[in-house]
Every structure is written in C-alpha cells, then in structure tokens.
Design a protein around this nucleic acid. Structure first.
Lengths: 343, 343
DNA sequence: ACCTGAATTTGGAACGTTCCAAACGATAGT
DNA sequence: ACTATCGTTTGGAACGTTCCAAATTCAGGT
C-alpha cells in the first residue's frame, strides 16, 4: 500500500488536506458525483495522483455493502475445458462491470472450503462454483442460508437448491453410445469419473440407457471409475484390453480422459479409430488437433459460461428464482471412432 | 452476507451477545488466542455457527493491514501453458497460507489496468503478473512506488525494476534453431509474437543468433509477427508457403502457435516433420499428444511457477531484494522436426 | 478474611470510508 | 438591506474489526 511521507497509508483525509477540501468532498469526487464544481474536482484528482492514493474498498464496503467482485471457484483449472468456461464467464462480467476472481480447488473439498471461506470473508457479490468431487450439501448450506447468489456450473450437488448450468450429459452420452452402436460395436466401455459426481451418473446413465435400448447387457467390468485425468484414461485402456472379452470401443467421461486413453492405445501399437474406437466429451480445442481428431460430444462451452454469468447477474440484481439450464450437446464425428475391426 | 433475525449482517457483536461475552473475547477466539478459557471458547464457537457468522476481513484489515490474498494476473488463461503456470504457483501459496486469486486479462492492457486497480483496492499482499502485451513502464509504477511486492512472470517490462521469473528464452530459441540447422534446414522461419514483447525479442534473438553463427542471412520476410494464437500459426504457414523460396522449417513462438501451424500444414496435405519441420516453445502437455508429437523447447513450467511464488513470499516477508530468475530450458526432440525434404 | 499474582475478560479508541443533515456562499427577487 | 433559493461543501456518526490498558475473577498462600 502506498504510504504518505509520514509513513502511513495515504487516505482520503490526506487527499482532502492536500487539495484543501473536506474528506466528504473527496468522497463525492471519487463517486463521480455531479455536485462538485469542476475545478474542485480537478484539485482533488490532482492530489490523488500526486500522492498515489489507492481507494480502500474494504473500508467502503464496511459502510455500504455492495461489491463488484464475483467469485469463480473451479475444480480443475488445468483442464482446458474449465479454462474455456472461465473465459466465457469472464466476458459477460467484464461488460457488466463486475470483476471475476478465479480460484482453483484442484478437486479438493478441503481446499474448496478454504477458498469459499476466503471469498465470503471478502464479501463477494456472487459465486459461480464448479464443485470439487466429494462436495456435500452441508458444505454449501452456509452459503445458501447466507443468501449469497450461487450458480453451480457443470456439476450439481445432491440436495442443494441453487441455480445450475450444465450440459445435457444424459442425452450427449446416449447419443455418443448410439453412434458407437450404429458403427457396429457391441462391447463398449465407459471410462472415467466417479459415481458420486452428478456429471458422471448422468453421462454413465445415458450410456447405460443406450445399451439397454439396444438390448445389450451393461457389464460392470466395462465401467471404469477414476479421476478425470489422462492417467485414468491410460490405465483404463490397459485394464480393459486385458479382459477376456475386451471392448472394441469406449466412451470417455471427458476429452482429457480420452487423450490419455489415446496415448495408451498408441503405446500398444493400436490405431485409434481402426483397432479401437474412442469418443470423448466436452470438445475442448485440443480435441480436433490430436491424432486422430477426436470424435466427441460438444457442449458449447462458451455459451454455457455465458449462461452461468447471466444467471448470476440476474440473482445479484435481486431476482431470486432458481433456474436450471441444460445446455445443448452435439456429437462431433471425427476420426477416433470407426467400425469395429472384427465384426 | 448472512443476516441476523433483525435483518442486518451478523457481526461479532451479535456473537458476543449470544454467547454472553464481550466483542473483545469473540475477537480473541477468532484469532485462536490461548488466553481464552476453553469453555468460553466453546460458547463463542457455538454462537458462531448457529448464527452463521462470516468474518469480515475488510473491517479487520482496516485495523491491522496484512492480508492473505495474493493476486495473479495472467495475460492468457486459455493458453494451457499459463494454466499450468498458475497451478505451480498455487501449490506453493497454498502451503504458505496465502490464497491466490487469479484474473485473466486476455492480453488487453485496459482490462489489465482494471483488474490491477481492483486488486490493489482489495489490499492484496503481493502480485504476480504476466503482463499483457503493450504494458508500459508507466502502467506499473504506481504499483512499484506503492511498495507492493511484484513479481513479473514470463515477460518483463522495459524499465520496470521488479523481480522476474522467465525461462531462458534466448538460449532455448538458439538451441532449437541450431537443431533445425543440424537437421539440414537452411531457410527457417520464426512465427508469432510481437517485437514489443520481451519474450519475443529474446526468442527471436536466439533464432537470429543461431542463423548468424551459421553464416546464414536473417531474412525479414521469414519473421512473421502476430498474436500468440493458433490463427497466427495457421496464417503464417499460408503466407510462408506462398513465398518464392519458402522455408523448410519454422520455429514457433510457442506451442499454441505451432498447433495452428500444424493444422495449416495438414490442411495443405503436408506431413509435419517430413515435408515441413516445426518446433514449438513451452512444452505444454498437449505437445506430446498432438500428431505428430511436437518437438519443442521445454521450460519446466511448474518450477517456474514455484520460483515465482517463492520470490513473492520472500518479498512479502520483507526481503526487498530484486531477483531475476532465468529458468532452464531443454529441447524435447520429438517428431515434428526432421530432415528437409529436398536437401 | 485478606493479599497477591496470574489468568481471563472487557471498554473504547482507532482504522478509512459513506451518507445525512446542516452550513455556507452567491445570486436574485422583493 | 433582507430573505429565499440554488449550488456547493462539510462535520460527524456509523460500519465491523483489533488492540491496548485496565478491570475483573480466581486460587493459593498467609
């Protein structure tokens, strides 16, 4: 913090003295009030930048609530998907005059609790949360009862009554699975995520639904849980290919998992799309750049982010209606999925 | 913010009343002071969570300065490289008890100014900045003279005396260029970035140095500036291949640019690594997953992030020495660079 | 019962802002 | 000259915390 010659923080009072006015006048200037005479304003403005004054928003909000801070708490910033989501959200807030601050929980509920607490202590206007795996209702009800506007993004939390913005996971996964079935696959695996994440149950549910509709059994050994990382994808491939009757295709929980699976296939000398088919979820930018380009379920990340931001703004402006937005999904058919080798 | 039954924010005074003690005692409890008797502490703690009290850090820092907030301002969060950097930084702060807040400037100095102002107004303990392109000394000297601990990451700003953490851009680029020369290339392009970014002048400088050392001329039409995006990479390839004597290889400013260039080559039906060689910079995770795996200069992102965080912590703890850390670089030879086709 | 020192607890000023009610200065109308 | 009015400016209380000095309680001698 900038300090005056006498060693303490430069405050409005210092400015007032330097400009020969009262602190009230300085306050008015800072708020852009039309009441102050033009040349008084100039004197004040001058003093402000010769002294290097920095507005103390903490002190201000002590008197008058309202902040322009919005928190975005993200479970995995290293996943490009969430980075893209964050960018969509930011764009909206920026034009609305809010400053979004991002924090990463790296999928740790403990970390999430810390971050959430810190954000509330700093008196944010609202919170967009992509909950870490393992988040329970109890972790959030302090926020709910506190009346802080909350939008859940990508994942919901059982029992928590908050607005949410998610892609249509069920339909996306069912469509992807149907596509694999159309290609002729009969043994299809599902890789990644944990059954305690809403996104996983929905995606895995769509997968099961498609299989059942086709009259195929759902084989438990074909559903492999794990963190949504490359490593999970790679390990799952190893595990699946050592099965007695290995699958010929897999639907991955998301593109990052698919990336890992693709690596493992290549290491084994198998051609993705020909020897083994892979479908991802999210359609991150990398999906079309990897080799082969990944067939995946696109979720329109940017507009999902914008929807979340708009929902937030509505709540900040006093509209307390809950709203669950289900984003459109579309299957992007690229080259990582093809007909099974041995039909 | 949580409100008491009477409608106002729940404060320490409410807690004090509910617990039958004074506000001072509540304050002591909140600070974990050993002075308070165990059962008083319990009474207070109880009141706190039945009333849903939220600590008001703004009010607190009004009295006693010190914050546990650190700002991280990043010029392009959509570039996985910076996301990885952020993760490295976070890891350190987390264990040190600081909460890093991330903001994205999307390479816009205007946006950066807003974000910087907001962060200072919220009284952060320090700032790690990856400056947006076009940041000038004047944009930062309010921060410097204000005495806020500042670490510049990845890019420096001419004239700004602040600690910095950057990879050894010059050496990395020279090494990469030498490698292309060893492979037999004689016409080598440099793609991406602008000459007003320190990182670009250093990388491009390394490229020139290698060419000159080999007795080759530096051809201005072979150096293509542009934002560090995929689009730049793609457009550059189009432009370069339409030259009278097109290059046979290119060093890209970073991996994202290389990704774009690789796409453009594929669209043209050229095989990267055989028909045209590409070298990137950064070694983002995607680099080894794209096709073909990208030859690139690895910068050890994680430890760069950790170095930045440690430099920051030192400054926060009062050590005001400037420190310029130059991170090690190593060339990762993968498949996107090979011998030129027509030697 | 009384004194002493240690262990706890407390009132109040201070931090930097906002906002209200009131004051001020200039101008114009009588 | 006096008042009303308008446009500006201002003092001071309040916001929720911390921290100091002082007050209170407690236990153990005597």
């Amino acid at each position: 913090m900038p300090r005056s010659p006498t060693g303490h923080r430069v405050t409005m009072i210092d400015i007032a003295e330097a400009a020969g006015v009262s602190k009230s006048t300085v306050s008015l200037v800072l708020q852009g009030s039309p009441l102050v005479k033009a040349d008084t304003r100039d004197k004040v403005l001058n003093a402000i930048d010769t002294l290097g004054y920095v507005y103390n928003r903490g002190a201000a909000s002590l008197r008058n609530a309202r902040t322009n801070l919005v928190g975005m708490v993200i479970n995995d910033l290293a996943n490009p998907f969430f980075a893209e989501l964050a960018v969509g959200i930011e764009r909206v807030f920026q034009t609305a005059g809010y400053i979004p601050f991002i924090a990463n929980t790296a999928e740790s509920p403990t970390r999430q609790a810390e971050v959430l607490r810190s954000m509330r202590e700093h008196d944010i206007a609202g919170l967009i949360l992509c909950p870490a795996r393992g988040t329970r209702q109890g972790d959030l009800d302090a926020i709910i009862t506190g009346g802080l506007p909350l939008v859940l993004a990508m994942r919901r939390v059982a029992g928590v009554k908050a607005s949410s913005v998610t892609p249509d996971n069920f339909r996306g996964a069912r469509r992807a699975t149907e596509y694999l079935l159309e290609l002729g696959h009969r043994r299809i695996a599902f890789i990644g995520g944990y059954a305690d994440m809403t996104a996983q149950t929905e995606r895995c549910g769509g997968y099961r639904a498609a299989l059942e509709a086709a009259g195929l059994p759902v084989d438990g050994t074909m559903v492999i849980e794990g963190p949504t990382t490359r490593e999970t994808g790679a390990a799952a491939i190893e595990q699946l290919l050592s099965l007695g009757a290995p699958p010929t295709a897999a639907l991955c929980f998301n593109d990052v998992v698919a990336l890992g699976a693709n690596d493992a296939l290549r290491r084994r000398g198998l051609a993705t799309g020909a020897d083994f088919s892979l479908v991802g979820f999210d359609d991150i930018r990398e999906a079309r750049h990897m080799w082969p380009p990944l067939t995946t379920v696109a979720v329109d990340t940017l507009s999902l982010g914008e929807k979340a931001a708009h929902a937030m703004l509505r709540m900040i402006h006093g509209d307390s209606r809950r709203d669950d937005y289900l984003g459109d999904v579309t299957l992007m058919m690229r080259d990582s999925a093809g007909h099974p080798k041995a039909v």
